[in-house]
């Protein structure tokens, strides 16, 4: 994979986290009923950052869970290698407003699987989707409520998102496959 261009750097990502945190508080009129779910793996650090920022702004504690969607994929016959991760939702989600967080929104299939997974844990009041990058090419009628950056791409490109917590630096770049 060859890098074509850097799309977001560390300070861009920081500004996006802060802006989305404010948008979430505004739309939900506070943070009372919110819980955060990050989709494994790259949704986790982004969700944590936004959650931490809201906790600071609102002086409150917000429950945080991790969701792995491997068991809900619709492509087992495509024989794609599966790396399992832990699902950890140690609280009730019934009647909560869930902020679901992932790094890149592409075909929409991951989000479809995540919605199915969440419903198995209970019936939330609402689910709102946060993504850092919306790269288009949707195959399902799914959209994000909060978008870091809309990034029109072609299908032979790949969006690489890096987080300090995982790769050691904060960067989003667009690469040739």
């Amino acid at each position: 994979m060859r890098e074509k261009a850097t799309v977001l750097n560390e300070s861009d990502m920081d500004r996006i986290v802060k802006r989305i945190a404010h948008e979430i508080i505004e739309r939900n009129k506070g943070s009372n009923n919110l819980i955060f779910l990050g989709i494994q793996k790259k949704g986790i650090p982004l969700a944590e950052r936004i959650r931490d920022h809201i906790e600071n702004l609102e002086k409150t504690k917000i429950d945080f869970g991790k969701l792995d969607i491997s068991f809900y994929r619709d492509d087992i016959d495509k024989k794609i290698k599966t790396d399992f991760n832990i699902t950890d939702i140690p609280f009730e989600i019934k009647d909560k407003d869930i902020i679901l967080v992932d790094d890149v929104l592409f075909t929409g299939r991951t989000i479809r699987a995540a919605l199915d997974a969440i419903m198995d844990f209970g019936r939330p009041k609402s689910i709102q989707l946060v993504v850092l990058i919306d790269r288009g090419h949707r195959e399902l009628p799914i959209r994000a409520d909060y978008v870091g950056k809309n990034l029109p791409t072609s299908l032979n490109e790949y969006v690489e998102v890096m987080f300090k917590e995982i790769e050691g630096e904060d960067k989003v770049s667009i690469c040739w496959i």
Binding site: I76, I86, D120, G122
Partner: peptide
């Protein structure tokens, strides 16, 4: 052994079922 841990988590849920092998 590693992946078994993830499947064990499913067995601890209230709804102990996932659609991973639906149709098989």
């Amino acid at each position: 052994i590693e992946s078994t841990g993830y499947f064990k988590e499913v067995l601890g849920r209230d709804l102990k079922k996932v659609p991973a092998l639906r149709g098989k």
